[in-house]
Design a protein around this nucleic acid. Sequence first.
RNA 1: GGCGGCGUAGCCAAGUGGCUAAGGCGACGGUCUGCAAAACCGUUAUUCCCCGGUUCGAAUCCGGGCGCCGCCUCCA
Length: 490
Amino acid sequence: MTLYIFNTMTRAKEKFIPMHEGRIGMYVCGITAYDRCHIGHARSAVVFDAVVRHLRKRGYDVKFIRNFTDIDDKIINRAAEEGIGTTELAEREIAHFHQDMDALGVLRADIEPKATEHIDDIISLIQKLMDKGFAYEAGGDVYFAVRKFPSYGKLSRRNLEELQSGARIKPGENKKDPLDFALWKAAKPGEPQWNSPWEPGRPGWHIECSAMSMKYLGETLDIHGGGLDLAFPHHENERAQSEAATGKQFVRYWMHNGFVTIKGEKMSKSLGNFITIKDILSHFHPEALRLFLLSKHYRSPLDYSPDALEESTSALDRCYKALFEAQQAIQVPVKKKRPLPDEAINDLEIISRLVEQVNQAMDDDFNTALALGHIFNAVRALNRVLDKAASQSSALYKPGLEQSISVITGAADVLGILGMEPAEYIGARNMQTLAASGLSEEKLQELIDTRTKARQEKNWALADNIRNELSAKGIILKDTPSGTQWSADL
RNA sequence: GGCGGCGUAGCCAAGUGGCUAAGGCGACGGUCUGCAAAACCGUUAUUCCCCGGUUCGAAUCCGGGCGCCGCCUCCA
């Protein structure tokens, strides 16, 4: 087993070798807690959730850290707009984040540090940079001297001259070189502040990630992840600070996920084209959103549209229906021990290979799209077995079906899908549809009974009429040997 | 302007030198059914934006076009 990870630093897929055998320290940049999360945040969270799940399945002991930035300009401004405290705002949005992520099945990080709870660690890291001559105080602020760190720009492939031409010193900044960035910002009147060896103030954005990641994971992290937009300047700056302070390699593997776009354009507040996780989950199942987010390779851009979510929903429905049918088939009492046909044996074998296929796909730089393809293939094979079992029932199907259900759900777990009881999933979708149709369960059953009677009398016109009316409300009738069943239009 | 990415079927998408170019959604035909639905089977890219080149062999490598997108400022 060899795991390959595309490393942004080298722009190549590299064999993954952690610093300490069997153990992985992983840090992913979390959110700045000032507003609801949108689907772009969901992508980053779900992608790295799948990464963690896979690494753990591969037997690694993963220590996973995801931080919260709970003090910065955006938080200060928003809190002022709302007339509340920065802590109150940050706590509220952190709670929203947890709501959204729990709904999405994103596992909690092992540690979720907040910047404001690590001021001491941040200050001592800044002090270290001062002592080593990489940082200087100016007008109460403390800045990192970019030109003192020779390999600055290596991660994002930028050279200082290019950066120099675009950079400028904004009014109110006291830095000596436009390239320098703030490690500590002196507080303006009325702003939240902490005491420091310099002026009372607050940490810059970049230093908090350096301080918190190294506090919990040591001076060298195995994996550091985040959205592609964080590569510059955030991660470039983190790297400069951390390596300047320790003299050691900060990160072994840098991972960056691509953006979510809408109609081909990056989602952003200024374009007003963002959509929140909460909004999406009010229309679509959380696992459908996960399936969508993992249907394309994590480094590519992913275009959001409601239609795309509908497609993911259809695919997810098909998987759950197959699992549900398999469970039902196991329940049906069969005494005959007729030998299984070769086709069924073949299909059961195809399914049994799924775990290894998914593992291999994930080993290759977390190819979730390929892993999904394998899962869909297994589901189709399961349906084939079910077809055979229906026409040539045999008690010998049971172990194979039980095994198949557990293989498929086990394999899908790395993607965080198919984790519900199939009956529960389908039941929830049915209830949702029933509620939307405006019919009560009793009324629906009445209509079905009327139709059954009409069918017995071969009154096809009436029967079809009832079916069509229900169909218009999203309720689909299915006539089976054991009676008529209804379900949502899955 | 600098740096980087992408262009594979109706739509989404995997595949980065060599078996019949995965898979999903959709569409069409078949099996099943009173007719349907679901499920299954089959069909849906002799070809991977275009033009050259390298190679015994290219969607995959190289050069040149065309088109789209991102970063260079806060941003997952």
